Simulated assay, not measured.
Amino acid sequence: MTDKQMAAQMAGKPGFVAALDQSGGSTPEALRLYGIPDTAYNGDAEMFDLIHEMRVRIMTAPAFSGDKVIAAILFERTMDSEISGKPIPSYLWEDRGIIPLLKVDAGRESESDGVQLMKPMPKLDPLLERAVKKGIHGTKMRSVVRLPSASGIAAIVAQQFEVAKHIAGYGLTPIIEPEVLISSPDKAGAEAILRDEISKGLEALPDGVKVMLKLTIPTVADLYKPLVEHRNVARVLALSGGYTRTDACERLKHNKGVIASFSRALIEELRVSTTDTELNEALSRAINESYEASVHKA
């Protein structure tokens, strides 16, 4: 019953997806934004402890609830942690009504042919086994597009779909995330190629396999409309990609059927020095703006 409830909520509930999955590469930037400088910690262990404290403040804030937040993407260490003695995936779903999702990629290769493929994931299977046991509904994996290279984009889309089919074999719903950098010299050109390659990948999926897509908000409004409407797509999410929340929300309003899945844009007003009440007020503003841009379109 829980799986069916999560699937129905993921596919159809109004709202957005919170991205709380900052990893080794993006964590220092997130901590700086939160008001914690690099000099405040020594090594990865202390760094991850600090980002975990920030995530717990967010997840336990009154504003962070299933009323407007459909799901939350977690980092592996977050999945394995607890809140008040309860595993975080269970806490999110049972106490907050928020679907737990999991980041599973191991980072990206150096750029080649205008893109960055995902690194090999030799520990993927045991991670997926743990995720299933902990009640995770779906997974996310990110690769990067910088240039409108037809061969490069075809390669990352092929890699994403290959891994996605493997993940689906565990009963999980994979999120495919080939991010087009907003600094790309031809962002619109890259996005047009990406849409066509994703369409090919969707058509080749086995019957009954559904995926989610997490994509940069496109330069051309409603570019991804065919993907939103595809029978094998459960939801299309938008990443903020470095846009401010105001800019990202304004752009998102012009893309029907696409909902927010912001990370930096969600936490840009949060600070370690604020009281819990002040943090909840700032988070509430971020949640309301992300919800409005996801649900009410121009």
Rank of each mutant, 00 (worst) to 15 (best):
L194H: 12
S199G: 14
F262P: 05
I287R: 05
G85I: 13
S110K: 14
D276N: 11
T274E: 14
K133Y: 00
G43D: 04
A286N: 03
E129H: 09
T219M: 00
E197L: 12
Q116F: 02
I167Y: 07
I259G: 00
H296I: 13
Q9E: 03
E229F: 01
R57V: 01
I176M: 04
T39C: 04
K187M: 10
A164Q: 09
P62D: 08
T39W: 11
F16R: 03
M121W: 05
A238G: 09
I136E: 06
G135E: 11
R231T: 11
G107H: 03
G171H: 07
I83G: 09
G241V: 13
I58T: 08
A260Y: 05
T246D: 12
S65Y: 14
A131R: 09
I167C: 10
P218M: 05
E229K: 15
S290Y: 06
L147R: 05
K123W: 13
E191W: 00
K68A: 06
R251K: 15
S294Y: 07
P120C: 08
E29S: 14
V144Y: 08
A168H: 12
A72K: 04
S184T: 01
P14I: 06
A150F: 01
S81W: 05
S84L: 05
A164E: 11
T139C: 07
K123E: 15
L31S: 02
M6A: 02
K187S: 02
T173C: 03
D105E: 10
V132C: 06
D38W: 01
V211R: 11
R251W: 09
Q22T: 10
A8I: 06
D44H: 11
I88T: 05
D196W: 07
S261A: 15
V69M: 11
A131D: 10
A260E: 03
N280H: 02
T27I: 14
D196P: 10
I58W: 09
D105H: 14
A238H: 08
P122R: 07
